[in-house]
Design a protein around this nucleic acid. Structure first.
Lengths: 246, 246
DNA sequence: CGTTGCGTTGAGAGGCTTCAACCTAGGTGG
DNA sequence: CCACCTAGGTTGAAGCCTCTCAACGCAACG
């Protein structure tokens, strides 16, 4: 396992899973956050219909992309963990087509499109890693669609928890089998396409089967292999082994 | 409406909705298909686990992205219509994480990653349009997730049909209210996360309500505004008005 | 110490699935 | 040219999964 130093920024830790970065690359990334903002929980970073105002890079906290229907029904389409960012090329469109909200208090750096363009031009390794990052975002979306469309309620939650375990481990925010889960059951419901009542019942079953412990806002996976097996979780879509498999 | 000449390639027609192209840009795009292949219906263009072998550009026919579970359950995550292509940056990853199959006989041009890189470097307008294209692909995935996660069965089909109407109109493959629908009810089921039996019943209801006529492989939308209203269809995520709204 | 948000549990209804049979059209071969 | 065959559309019935509505518990907070 290529373990990064704990002091390193989550973005560097994430991108180093995709490609090798030079010291200059890392330095460029550390200084990317021109304008850092502290955002409370349950606020919108981006609202559907707005003009794009730069690319948000999440430094701390957890956020999510979502869309709402006229009747108030909400579908969450992505979780953003530290090191994740908005679409690289938002500047190319006039109006954003979805919203981004915070689950917990977040520290976010707003990157100017020009800055991003400069970095991509001057640091080809970073450019490559960022592109792989958006490829992974898209692959994750496809996996979530499979999750909602073709998995049972328990499997959906198991899959989500398995994915988060891996993604948070990459940025050093999860132990071998546990991490903080800032969202409530209603948000899990809007993520997995279920009702919050049914999320509750499914969680109870996962607990009863000894697969997870979820108290307060900490999730502990009591049997990681079993949970992954239940979810039929394959990590290939996260492309975490690009470096090694060259 | 900016109507392209019918002789123009579907890719040019599509990209011209995103940005203005010069005559040189158009010429570069017309000649992009180095190696054109004819693929029968129900074949895989790309298979999950393979190494990427270039970027497929669909010239004729209809294809789809999908993933399958161990139990055989399948989820379709995108439809490819003429002018659509695979991920721009596939060359950056070692193994593809999903498959692409054909609904109907297809003519596809395989573009070499170098060719694509050259074109993007030498034609900034094309580069911009292609990036908007992948932004739209991702936005469409989010819309499909909302569709499967938070819409009723009839609404899902209505939304899918509304989206296809617009996308096919862009490349000149749909009339004001009808187009060819090459896939069967089982495929519609795997697209919308339903069983094929329930797709059938939902289609029957849409017919009974006078919204659609679906005979053979031709779909006619008898009441376009009503179908869009039922689906709560908003076209913003397709970003078809980027040029005008500059 | 009341309020409030969220998790938990119960009951009933309904949407959707599964299994299965039947029908229809198109293709094949006699 | 017709009969058979097969794939896919259509319909019925039964049951389960999931939803909605609703009540209640509990812990954090003011």
């Amino acid at each position: 396992m290529h373990q990064s130093l704990p002091t390193r920024s989550p973005l560097v830790r994430k991108l180093e899973r995709f490609t090798s970065l030079s010291e200059a690359d890392r330095a460029a990334l550390e200084g990317i956050g021109s304008h850092v903002e502290n955002v409370p929980a349950h606020r919108d970073l981006v609202t559907e219909g707005d003009r794009p105002r730069g690319v948000p890079l999440l430094l701390e906290g957890m956020a999510y992309r979502y869309k709402v229907r006229a009747n108030g029904a909400r579908q969450i389409s992505a979780y953003l963990v530290p090191g994740d960012m908005g679409d690289l090329d938002v500047a190319l469109i006039n109006r954003v087509d979805h919203s981004v909200g915070t689950f917990s208090p977040c520290r976010v750096a707003w990157i100017k499109p020009e800055t991003l363009a400069d970095i991509q031009r001057e640091h080809s390794a970073i450019a490559r890693a960022l592109r792989i990052g958006t490829l992974v975002d898209e692959a994750t979306l496809r996996e979530w669609l499979l999750n909602v469309g073709r998995r049972s309620s328990k499997e959906r939650l198991a899959h989500l928890f398995s994915e988060l375990l891996l993604r948070l481990q990459v940025v050093g925010l999860a132990t071998e089998n546990s991490y903080a889960l800032p969202m409530g059951q209603a948000e899990l419901a809007d993520t997995t396409g279920m009702s919050s009542v049914h999320v509750n019942r499914s969680l109870m079953e996962l607990r009863r089967e000894g697969l997870i412990a979820l108290t307060g806002r900490t999730l502990t996976i009591l049997d990681v292999p079993a949970l992954k097996a239940l979810a039929e979780f394959k990590a290939n879509y996260l492309h975490l082994e690009e470096r090694g498999a060259a």
